[in-house]
Computed example of a mutant assay.
Amino acid sequence: MLEVDNIEKYYDNVQILYGVYLKAEEGQVTGILGSNGCGKSTLLRIIFGSLKSKYKLIKIDGNVLLKKLYETGIAKYLPQHNFIPNFLSIRKALQLYHISEADFKSFFIENDFRLSQKFGELSGGQRRIVEVFLTLKTPSRIILLDEPFSHISPVQVEAIKKLIEIEKQHKIIVITDHLYREITEVSDTIYLIKNGSSKRIQQLTELEDYKYISQGSL
């Protein structure tokens, strides 16, 4: 179990996050929703350890984490931007992420990928879906996904959602995206970031009550 509490973040003396709490468990997908600029990406970066915060408490299986999460080697983070160097080939990336070529080929059976292709040669959509695949298939216990559905086709979105359902069985997955329907469909637990605080969503109609979506959008 991953549990984060009391996360506060300031940018130039402006407070963005106010004591945010979130709990994510193995076997479940924990979704984070919120309007643009509310701090969703900031929260993921703080959890991962790549961004400092004024306060934070992070626990793994009930034990307080005393170092950055990425330093433990048990977590992988998918940022919004492309993060694999242009010069790296798909084959080399698979080796670095300890993923078999057979797994890659079976997932991308309908796509014309060559393992010798470099990331700089892929289209934006191709590159994004490969990076999402690599992050999800890594042996790491904790997976943090920031906008995995953006810039890819509806068919690829469905493929990623199926992969998430498979991988969550033995992983903790935390996910955020501005495509809220995709998040609500794939998530077992949902938190809404509103006015800098986290609110556990018990029923989707609460998203209308909190004015995250308009009435009748569900």
Rank of each mutant, 00 (worst) to 15 (best):
8 E>V: 02
24 A>C: 10
195 N>P: 00
143 I>F: 03
96 L>E: 13
139 P>L: 11
147 E>F: 09
24 A>L: 02
193 I>H: 00
48 F>M: 08
166 I>M: 08
95 Q>R: 12
202 Q>S: 12
25 E>N: 14
74 I>S: 12
184 T>F: 11
139 P>D: 14
91 R>T: 11
121 E>S: 12
99 I>P: 03
2 L>K: 03
116 S>R: 13
107 F>W: 07
19 G>P: 11
44 L>S: 09
206 E>A: 10
43 L>K: 03
136 L>G: 05
77 Y>W: 09
163 L>G: 08
93 A>F: 07
145 L>A: 05
131 E>Y: 10
183 I>E: 06
101 E>G: 03
91 R>P: 10
4 V>P: 03
129 I>K: 04
129 I>H: 00
16 I>E: 09
50 S>V: 15
73 G>T: 00
11 Y>D: 06
206 E>Q: 15
4 V>W: 02
15 Q>P: 12
86 N>A: 08
152 I>C: 01
208 E>R: 07
188 D>A: 11
150 S>C: 06
154 P>D: 14
166 I>H: 07
12 D>F: 06
162 K>P: 01
35 S>W: 08
3 E>M: 03
51 L>K: 15
184 T>H: 04
3 E>I: 01
201 I>G: 06
191 Y>M: 02
53 S>E: 10
126 Q>W: 09
176 T>F: 05
72 T>G: 10
